[in-house]
Simulated scan of single mutants.
Amino acid sequence: MLEYFPSLNDHNLPYPDTIHPIVVHFVIAMVLFAFICDLIGYFSRKSSFYEVSWWNMCFATLSIFVAIIFGQVEAGLAQPYEVVQPVLNLHTLIGWSLSGIIAAITAWRYILRSRNPNKIPITYLGVGLFLTSLVFFQIYLGDELVWVYGLHTVKVVEAVKEGILQ
């Protein structure tokens, strides 16, 4: 059965390089841009910014699930050593939580948009600020996994295979 699975490369992946960071950067950009558009629309009273924000949140909602799928696959293949495990677990927990939070905020936005597409309440901006803060914390954790702990870098993969890191 195992002969049907592709062999892993020196990044410990079945494909050339990590895909999760590529997809997740779209999610990050769309969520942050949606919040900026909401702020601009709120203070300038130009409802066209709300339309841009709405579509960014829709695509972010779909994209985060793709990012999570690749994140789960790549986390499973990372062979995380003991020191990195708590950071990876927190990053995973927040990632799954963000998928629900983003979907809920998008659903709320749909209701607001259905009632009045030219206005959003200040509480929605407060929730957007919370979401933005959570995204920045998630970015920090992801950066830590790559730049501090070196997940899927060739030297760390080799060190784990040789038993140097445990």
Rank of each mutant, 00 (worst) to 15 (best):
P80Y: 09
R115P: 03
S47V: 00
K46S: 02
A67S: 11
I105Y: 05
R45T: 01
V156H: 09
R113S: 02
T92V: 11
R113K: 11
V146W: 09
L134I: 04
V31E: 07
L88E: 04
A34D: 01
P21N: 11
W54T: 02
Y42F: 10
V31W: 13
H25A: 08
A103C: 09
S44L: 14
A159K: 14
F26C: 01
R45I: 00
L129P: 00
P86S: 14
V148H: 09
F130H: 00
E82N: 13
I28A: 02
E158G: 09
S99D: 08
L129W: 02
W108E: 00
V66F: 14
R45V: 00
F130L: 03
V52R: 15
V84N: 12
E162H: 06
A103T: 07
E74A: 07
G76N: 13
M30F: 09
F65S: 10
Q72D: 14
I69L: 15
I28V: 04
V157A: 07
L93M: 14
L90G: 06
G76K: 13
L77F: 06
D143I: 02
F35Q: 09
I105A: 08
S63R: 00
G100M: 11
S114A: 00
N118D: 03
L32T: 02
N56G: 06
A34S: 05
F65V: 12
H152C: 14
I94P: 13
H91L: 07
S44I: 13
E74N: 07
A29D: 01
V157P: 08
E144G: 06
G41Q: 06
Y42P: 01
G95D: 12
E74M: 11
A159E: 15
V23K: 05
V31I: 11
E158H: 10
I19H: 04
R113A: 08
I69H: 12
M30N: 08
L129N: 00
F65D: 08
H20T: 12
L129A: 04
Y124N: 06
W55C: 04
I40E: 05
A107M: 08
V146I: 09
L141V: 11
I40R: 06
S99M: 14
V157M: 13
V23I: 11
E51S: 02
T153M: 10
S114C: 00
F33L: 12
V84G: 14
Y140H: 04
V31C: 07
C58F: 05
Q138P: 00
G100P: 01
Y149P: 04
T153I: 07
M57D: 05
V135K: 09
L90Q: 10
N118F: 03
N56M: 13
W147S: 07
P80E: 15
P117C: 10
L62R: 03
L77D: 09
A78W: 12
T132N: 03
C37N: 06
A75W: 12
V73E: 04
L32Q: 06
Y149G: 08
A29P: 03
F65H: 11
Q85I: 15
F136Y: 15
L141M: 12
S48T: 14
C58K: 08
R113W: 12
L88Y: 04
P80H: 14
G95Q: 11
P86K: 15
P117T: 14
V73K: 09
H152D: 13
F70Y: 04
R109P: 05
R109W: 04
